[in-house]
Design a binder for these strands. Sequence first.
DNA 1: AAAGGCCGTAACAATTTCTTAATGCGCTAA
DNA 2: TTAGCGCATTAAGAAATTGTTACGGCCTTT
Lengths: 225, 225
Amino acid sequence: MAKQTILVVDDEKDLLDLIEYNLKKEGFDVIKAENGEEGIKKAKEHNPNLVLMDIMMPKMDGMEAVEKMRADDELKAIPIIFLTARSDEKTEVEGLDKGGDDYITKPISTTKLISRIKAVMRRFEETQEEVNRLDVHDLSIDKDRYIVTKGDEEFQLPRKEFELLYYLASRKGKVRDRQTLLNKVWGDNIYVVDRTVDVHVRKIREKLGDHYIETVKGVGYRFKE
Amino acid sequence: MAKQTILVVDDEKDLLDLIEYNLKKEGFDVIKAENGEEGIKKAKEHNPNLVLMDIMMPKMDGMEAVEKMRADDELKAIPIIFLTARSDEKTEVEGLDKGGDDYITKPISTTKLISRIKAVMRRFEETQEEVNRLDVHDLSIDKDRYIVTKGDEEFQLPRKEFELLYYLASRKGKVRDRQTLLNKVWGDNIYVVDRTVDVHVRKIREKLGDHYIETVKGVGYRFKE
DNA sequence: AAAGGCCGTAACAATTTCTTAATGCGCTAA
DNA sequence: TTAGCGCATTAAGAAATTGTTACGGCCTTT
């Protein structure tokens, strides 16, 4: 894998150098910027894998910069970690709401910083990864075509049924309660009765067979291990 | 999801009660302790999801308590938020070095306190991997899958039995009386006869064997050490 | 505009799980 | 030894949860 690039945005030059030194030692490429404006410019220029963003800065503060980044198609997918000095009493927790993926309180040990960076990257890669075909048991679930194949039979499931099946199958063995399934498959702010899930499960079973989706009474459903 | 438990350690009783009141209103279970020593004892006893730790306290101060916790295998993974009366740059640095996960200056508004707690918990959950499986003796109790494995046998226990077993196993060796078990597994405001616990214990023993859950006459039950 | 598929909801049946209460057993103290 | 207490065990019915079906609204296609 190519070297990962990290953009560090902070107005304290000493800290910037310290972080650069430590990240380079870990094998990252490092780009530096001293305020939000410069940060955005360099982000567009270098397309980094992750941004470390201080909140208190001159010209354009970190919060504002992140808002701008999240609104920019080119930059919106880049994971961001906020750095906050504990003296910023006001903005601390809002960072995550604005679109940060983690926030770190300065001062922080180098090892901790690095493990956080890796954790965020790992999380990101997992969600980024586009696995378009799932093969489980004797099923092949093709997300590009919304088609499920079982042996030489092909099933064209309706969208909700397909997505429900795909979600469960991609987390084989793990139980999910109805509310979680609704949030993940239907969407976070969709209001439907949770028994709707049952009906869709029923329809999937009707078409593919009873033994793929298991019921865990009182808890939810899971795809057979 | 089961209730999250928070241990609050502070020598000011009034503040302790205030925090308890507010956290309970938010749906947390709250355990209280008035000094570091008692805090560590209660942490071991109740295995909380997070600790709010005052720094200035008699007997054993918060800093020392946290050092002890971080050195203890049983407690090292619990996230800790420091509380202190005054913003003091020096203690702050020290606190984070010693292993605190966040740092809050009193006084603080309730909403702020709660959002910080949730932020730290969220961060923690995301960093944690595979903490939902308990391996005790020859049993593997997998909460993601709601399955108990013994050797190569799999048992699908009903929900209450599973959760009771999980609760006891996660506090291996600690005795719990029936009322506590009802509160923790059934829920705080569920009223059922406490002998109900006996029946569930009986069913677990029937399926997995007699020797995992031990009876302590006149007190309650415990998972074998 | 009609037909057909998809989706969400409600109703009721089927099933599993939970709770209770009754009974028996074993230990301990008088 | 016996009474008393606490726990184990069992079975039955109550409660909770899920399965199944049917229907109406909506959208898309024809």
